[in-house]
Design a protein around this nucleic acid. Sequence first.
RNA 1: GUGAGUGUCGCCUAGUGGUCUAAGGCGCCAGGUUGUGGCCCUGGAGAACGAGGGUUCAAAUCCCUCCACUCACCCCA
Length: 415
Amino acid sequence: MYRAPRGTSDILPKEQAHWRHIEQKVADICQLYGYERIDAPAFEDTQLFTRSVGEDTDIVEKQMYTFQDRSGSQITLRPEGTASVCRAYLEHGLHNLPQPVKLYYITSIFRYERPQAGRYRQHYQFGYEAIGDDDPTLDAEVIDLAWQFFESLNLHHLSLQLNSIGCKKCRPGYLTALKDYYASYTHDLCSDCKTRLKRNPLRLLDCKKPLCQQIANSAPRSIDYLCQQCDTHFNQLKKYLELLELPFIVNHCLVRGLDYYTRTVFEIQPEAEGAQSTLGGGGRYDDLIEELGGKPTPAIGFAAGIERIIINLKKQNIPVPSLPKPRVFIAYVGNEARDKATKLASTLRRTGIGVIEAIGSKSLKAQLRQANSLGIHHTVIIGDEEVEAGTVILRDMTTAEQKTIPIDQLEGELQ
RNA sequence: GUGAGUGUCGCCUAGUGGUCUAAGGCGCCAGGUUGUGGCCCUGGAGAACGAGGGUUCAAAUCCCUCCACUCACCCCA
């Protein structure tokens, strides 16, 4: 028997209420902040991702679904959302629009990883990007949107972690200081951290091993090495976040896994500790557009994992609105009644009333059982007598009351 | 990529060498008088016990290999 490929899953009807609810909240909040939807292709030129995400990241090194198509092009299923949006911004000359350009997406993301709770090979992210300005107010707005989004979902006990990792001017100095500091601790570091020291020193800071964390805690802080502009930017951002009453925590160990981040980085996490705790994260990427061939264009964005949001909604027992279903079930007995039922179902649907018509030749009892288990409010019953008299029986399934009415009054009764 | 755990009908679970060509619950289907649901009752369909190999007179139950799933590490959403 075929199964869904490893790390993928079917989203069955009983799960759809959660998905639709989140999609609705995304659309609402984005509209509120002036973001417009963009849908990019599921795959792109491999280079787009290797350039933007960074050659030395786990994503590029071992997680991309890359293949050659029939023409020999190197194609990659998108492992993150930002690169495609930036590509679209450049490709369609969106710099001609008033800046910043604000775009959002809900889309599937593909990464080849070992699946576990909250981590899949195909998952969905909601994300948004504000491209074309580096004003710290914009950073604040982007963070505020993320925070208000989770608020609107009634997800509580979240924390907002914030840091600034500087720009290409000031970061090299910081990295040097960091490496110097760690040089004296090489023997105490875990094996992973030893390789991090060589390959990606920033990542040393978020190792979870107790000893490594101790070392990280007294490591040089990126914010102490910011250049004048980055320092001012970060301070202004914090001021705006206070103005907006967002309860941020400056986390000196917060770094992000993608190379394109500059200055502001932030994450939103559930307060409960655990694996895959990050609900969403984002930050500034002031050099990315230029890197991809555009003019220097500052930008900032955020993305959150839909599955993780759903996990947390369930964990916190937060109900979501149930999806609407047809209000009327039509049952029938006999062939003539069946014709009537079919016609009636069609007529009602054309007036906007949702109808499920009994299908097949089941007993009336079976048909009513079905109506019951579908949780439908009204059942219309048509039999020989009703055909003869031009009537139908309208049964209220919640009260078990029913009455016989002329068929042409049914629509009025159902309004 | 590393480590641990699990694998019996659609779902949950019983069974730990012989009475198991596998039991129960949920769900599904059908009936409980003639055209009526939800409760109850009865019956039915549905798994050769993840796959393959081995041990044994005998295996769902023991061993091996593989596969899958789950969880954790790594990393991230």
